[in-house]
Design a protein around this nucleic acid. Structure first.
Length: 579
RNA sequence: GCGUGCGUAGCUCAGUUGGAUAGAGCGUUUGGCUACGAACCAAAAGGUCGGGGGUUCGAAUCCCUCCGCGCGUACCA
């Protein structure tokens, strides 16, 4: 990276300066204490290092420190200037041209670090109940999770994506009971869900079970005949299983449509059946972390950082949700993963401490579990916030995708910091205009493709009707990959420099994004790159009379197209060649 | 009450371990197509970084305190 190159130069110079006694009372310098930043004002240069913090040990004024360090730097064709305590750096043509060559050579691998501390990661996200369609909140986790998986894989980790199916609790009974009512309705019976609010909570009164009921009737004509349409004679379990399987299928199909691909769907039910849950409970009991109170079994999670103890087995003998979750996370570790990353909604944040406590209690390292808490999603329709959870206002993820498209939905769901509540403005996301960042970025890509087409394809002159040969022959276009001199790009054109520096930034963006797990930075980056590209395009003509210059500029356009394409691929948003 | 997240331009948001004049998009105003895609570009206006205190050469950033908003605070999942 150019900024590492610069930092190395500075740090080497500091060591030399220290040895020569030019840095006052400083006797040694530890690498890594200084950091490179991007100056806000472009006049200062491309990168800068602030050496003010050395003033304390050196006991000399910062400007003098900077000046003395500068003396020991080999400048090559780069520019160094000193202002106050800053050493400013302006990259020379060699570094800039090398970067373009690097992109052209590496293509989709550009920005991938050569060596990292590789981890085997299991990434769990969405993990919804199989009791109904996804709502838009699930869309945020689905989009962010899949982008994070793409990013971490690209960065060099091994990533396994898993969806935990909550198919074991009382909600499945609710589902079966609700289906029973829908079937009876379909068979012409005059029944409805209870109107009493408390009782209604035992059902899923949404319309979405109506088609399920229809299909059940169609598929089970024989059985219905045998029981003479008396649904109460059909085992509840049959209804539960039917509805559950149906909804699971609906969810999986939608995930595929949304370009989210899980390696595994892990059923909570099988976890119980395998005996792994009991095994965990027994281990906790053996180590004395369980006690009885009010007829229930309590886990002493407060011994491990939780603010209170938690019930692990209810007075009625059933396990709580937490119990299975403990076993599930232990199972992940037993499957050999170095790190577990979970994406949870902020409404579950109270769970973090207790799950981590359980890992500690069972002798595992709680730091191996990383939980990304995402703030929730508000839907904005006609400029007004629609509160989630009100059933009549319920917008499913599928409705949203059908309405605004996969690309726009994915981008909007990913573009904000996970810590902030996301306002999803349907009307804005649907617009194919300047208000919509997705189209802005895609347009930049299409524009780059268009330029390339214009250069390498022969054209037909509209007036004369004659064929005009391509600006560059195929051989000349292929030659872009060779190391010809591109320095003419940077004559007086500031836009070309800025554009190349933005391409350079891709590497640090990837690294930063992968390390902090903050995928929205990819969205920001891609908008900034598009913006720099549009500026460049308006400032200079790529295709011009000077063939050598055309080639050089085309190499830059090709680099932009490549990086845009790579970034959009991480987002799983399409990079269209034409729009 | 406690826990947690947020509060930065009219709106939606960036701001990397504390550093140079607090940034971007949208909206508003002005200008730019007989040339590679105007779904674009250039420029202007717009700020008490929620309020107050503190730490220091320096604070949107760290500490304290108060205010406002969201989420959580189950033997539900």
């Amino acid at each position: 990276m150019i900024k590492d190159y610069f930092l190395n130069k500075v740090e080497d110079a500091i060591e030399k300066a220290v040895k020569s006694g030019k840095l006052g009372q400083m006797t040694e310098y530890e690498k890594g204490t200084l950091a490179v930043e991007r100056p806000k004002n472009v006049d200062f240069g491309d990168y800068a290092v602030n050496v003010s913090c050395l003033a304390r040990t050196a006991r000399i004024a910062p400007p003098l420190i900077a000046q003395n360090i500068l003396e020991f730097i080999e400048k090559e064709d780069n520019e160094y200037t000193v202002i106050a305590g800053f050493i400013n750096f302006k990259a020379g043509n060699n570094l800039l041209c090398n970067l373009i060559d690097e992109i052209i050579k590496k293509k989709s691998l550009f920005g991938k670090p050569e060596k990292i501390d590789k981890e085997k990661i299991i990434l769990e996200y969405v993990s919804a109940n199989p009791t109904g369609p996804f709502h838009i909140g699930h869309g945020r986790w689905a989009a962010m999770g899949s982008v994070l998986a793409n990013l971490l894989k690209f960065y060099g980790h091994e990533v396994y994506q898993e969806f935990y199916i909550n198919d074991a609790g009382s909600q499945i009974q609710k589902l079966g009971n609700s289906l029973a009512i829908r079937i009876r309705q379909e068979l012409g019976e005059k029944v409805d869900f209870p109107t009493d609010e408390t009782e209604r909570k035992n059902y899923y009164p949404g319309d979405y079970l109506i088609p399920v009921a229809k299909e059940f009737i169609e598929r089970n004509a024989e059985i219905l005949k045998q029981v003479q349409n008396d649904i109460s004679l059909i085992p509840l379990q049959t209804l539960c299983d039917f509805a559950k399987d149906y909804e699971e299928k609906v969810q999986r199909d939608l995930l595929e449509k949304f370009r989210v691909h899980f390696d595994n769907f892990y059923s909570e039910l099988t976890l119980h059946k395998s005996g792994k849950v009991d095994e965990c409970v027994n281990k906790l009991k053996e180590s004395g972390k369980i006690y009885k109170k009010d007829g229930a079994d309590w886990f002493k999670s407060s011994d491990f950082g939780d603010d209170q103890d938690r019930v692990i087995k209810k007075a009625d003998g059933a396990n709580t949700y937490l119990t299975a979750d403990i076993a599930y996370h232990i199972d992940k570790l037993n499957r050999g993963f170095d790190r577990m990353i979970d994406i949870w909604g902020a409404d579950h944040h109270g769970y973090v401490a207790r799950v981590k406590a359980s890992l500690a209690a069972l002798g595992r390292d709680p730091d191996k579990l990383e939980i990304l808490l995402g703030q929730l999603v508000n839907l904005v329709v006609n400029g007004e916030e629609v509160r989630m959870g009100k059933r009549k206002n319920m917008v499913t993820l599928e409705d949203l995708i059908d309405d605004v498209g996969v690309d726009a939905t994915r981008f909007w769901m990913t573009m904000r910091n996970i810590d902030t509540t996301l306002d999803f403005d349907i009307d804005l996301a649907k617009k194919n205009s300047d208000e919509n960042p997705v189209f802005y970025v895609q347009y930049a890509h299409a524009r780059a493709c268009s330029i390339i087409r214009n250069v390498i394809n022969e054209k037909i002159d509209t007036e004369s009707g004659k064929t005009v040969p391509a600006v560059l022959s195929e051989a000349e276009y292929k030659d872009l990959t060779e190391n010809f001199d591109k320095s003419i790009l940077f004559g007086n054109i500031q836009d070309a420099r800025q554009l190349v520096l933005k391409l350079e930034e891709y590497k640090s963006m990837i690294e930063n994004s992968a390390k902090t797990r903050q995928v929205y930075t990819i969205c920001r980056y891609v908008q900034e790159l598009a913006s720099e590209f549009h500026s460049f395009y308006n400032a200079v003509r790529v295709i011009n009379d000077d063939k050598q210059l055309t080639k050089a500029r085309l190499a830059l356009v090709y680099s932009v197209k490549t990086v845009l394409n790579n970034a959009l691929e991480l987002l799983a948003v399409t990079a269209p060649e034409r729009m």
